[in-house]
Amino acid sequence: MRKLEARRRRATGELSVNCCPGRKDSGEQNRRMGRRIALWAAVPALAAGIVSAQQYGLGRSAGTDEIAAWDITIGPQGKGLPHGAGAAREGAQVYEVRCKECHGEAGAGGDQVGFVGKPEQLVGEKTVRNVGSFWPYATTLFDYTRRAMPFDRPGTLTDDQIYAVTAYILYLNGIVGEDETMDAETLPQVKMPNRGGFIRDPRRKP
């Protein structure tokens, strides 16, 4: 099977478990020694729930570039969205090559989930939970596609391609126009149909 083959072929080396090799902080030794004295004095503060006291001096300072390379999460307001842009027309081509095999023609679903739906489908006998019917934020679609898709080769789409294929999935749901460009400014402004569909867990607390 082609799909199986693709999975076996996937380059595990691309998995960025260690994209920022270790880099020792020059001030580390000083920090360790200096903080020995503060260790016991800080224990009551920690016990009281104040989480600011360095007691152990372990760990090293994280560099700005190192953080930037790992900090890929996109918040619901679009914080963290990268440069780049794309619209549904280009996205359709990306989808054809990289997504359709599992997710079906025009987001109809196949071996894996489909993308097209409306919130009205959240009630009744047979409910449909997907991007169109259920997802509250368009930014999450960008985030998930970038971190996890395509399933067997995550990390192989460019940011432009991800904006484009995100635009295409939104377009399939009638949420944006075919030539409407999605980028760091426009994507967070997209109002998903089910944005107001979630309520916080009302179950009893301990």
Binding site: T73, I74, G75, P76, P119, E120, L122, V123, T127, R129, N130, V131, F134, W135, P136, Y137, T139, T140, D143, Y144, A148, G197, F198, I199, R200, D201, P202, R203
Partner: peptide, 24 residues
């Protein structure tokens, strides 16, 4: 952050179409 696994999945759909979120 409303990530995929706390919105599209791991949320509880009620009969009225609303979903409970962060049902941890």
């Amino acid at each position: 952050q409303y990530v995929k696994d706390e919105t599209s999945k791991y949320t509880e759909l009620m009969e009225d179409g609303k979903a409970w979120i962060f049902t941890l």
